[in-house]
């Protein structure tokens, strides 16, 4: 007999009860943009803190017709991304790809692909810390109450203190934003550069936090406002005068790297799939 599917696994790993619960939770999350809906997160066969929340969302969605891309800080080939793809392929017949434009589902850690997510694609985020108010309030019961009352004075004060102390807001990645003029949410540790991509987008964004047992969502065409002050507006990272060593791009998010031998600084696209495509384009006249 051909072992095309390992019989020890359910289809898409999770049992149907778990999928149903994740699906019900996701539908609720879409109806309340940016609100963290609790769910009964399952133990997964990958290490904790390696994206079990995102993985559970992906498994609740995926079918044999899907094409999956998994990236870790923009990179398709990281150990984490590869092991997630292997797990999905062991329990479905879904295709995998590094081309974000071919994918129907993209699971990501810490980046949004350079090419905008289309209306027929879903971007799934792995979220380590879903609670944006945790930096000002340690207790879950209290942060829930603050969200309920839309009492966001604590986090605003924290941002104001930042400006007094540093002359700017010091938060880099995971910059808090307001969804649909109601909930402050954590976009996961994406760079500020990626945050505007969530505003009024064509695609659907789902966020899964496994350890904290929360699912939240940003539907398409939803207003996403990064927290900022009139005189200290939100700013994204800039790479003026820099370009990718591999594809020459100067309009993508670049990683700063150092040559081990010479100690020289250079730049490279963080989105490796997109970089590869740009290199190919450059070489075909």
């Amino acid at each position: 007999m051909q072992a095309h599917l390992k019989q020890t696994y359910n289809y898409a790993f999770l049992d149907e009860g778990s999928k149903k619960e994740i699906r019900r939770t996701t539908l609720k999350a879409i109806a309340i943009p940016g609100y963290q809906v609790p769910f009964a997160s399952r133990e997964m066969p990958i290490g904790r803190g390696w994206g079990t929340g995102g993985l559970q969302l992906t498994l609740s969605l995926i079918g044999d017709q899907d094409c999956l891309k998994v990236i870790d800080q923009g990179n398709d080939d990281s150990v984490n991304a590869v092991s997630i793809k292997k797990l999905v392929q062991s329990c479905t017949k879904a295709e995998v790809t590094t081309d974000s434009e071919r994918a129907t589902i993209i699971q990501t850690r810490h980046r949004i692909p350079e090419v905008p997510i289309r209306s027929d694609q879903i971007l799934v985020f792995q979220v380590p810390l879903p609670e944006p108010l945790r930096m000002v309030e340690a207790k879950e019961r209290k942060t829930k109450q603050l969200h309920a009352e839309m009492d966001y004075s604590g986090i605003w004060l924290r941002l104001y203190e930042d400006i007094v102390k540093w002359g700017k807001i010091s938060i880099g990645a995971d910059y808090p934003a307001l969804a649909h003029k109601r909930y402050i949410f954590a976009p996961s540790p994406i760079p500020r550069y990626d945050l505007p991509k969530l505003n009024h987008a064509d695609g659907l964004f789902l966020f899964g936090a496994g350890r904290e047992k929360k699912i939240y969502a940003i539907p398409p065409y939803t207003e996403i406002e990064p927290l900022a002050f009139d005189d200290y507006p939100f700013e994204v990272e800039h790479f003026e005068g820099c370009s990718c060593r591999l594809c020459g791009s100067s309009d993508t998010f670049l990683d700063e790297l150092f040559d081990e031998k010479t100690g020289q600084k250079f730049y490279q696209c963080s989105d490796t799939g997109n970089c590869r495509k740009r290199q190919e384009k450059r070489h075909t006249p």
Partner: peptide, 19 residues
């Protein structure tokens, strides 16, 4: 089918709920 067709329905429902 309780696995494949529920998933297909969910994907349609998800799309309708998101839009």
């Amino acid at each position: 089918h309780h696995v494949h067709d529920t998933r297909k329905l969910y994907r349609h429902l998800l799309d309708s709920m998101a839009r």
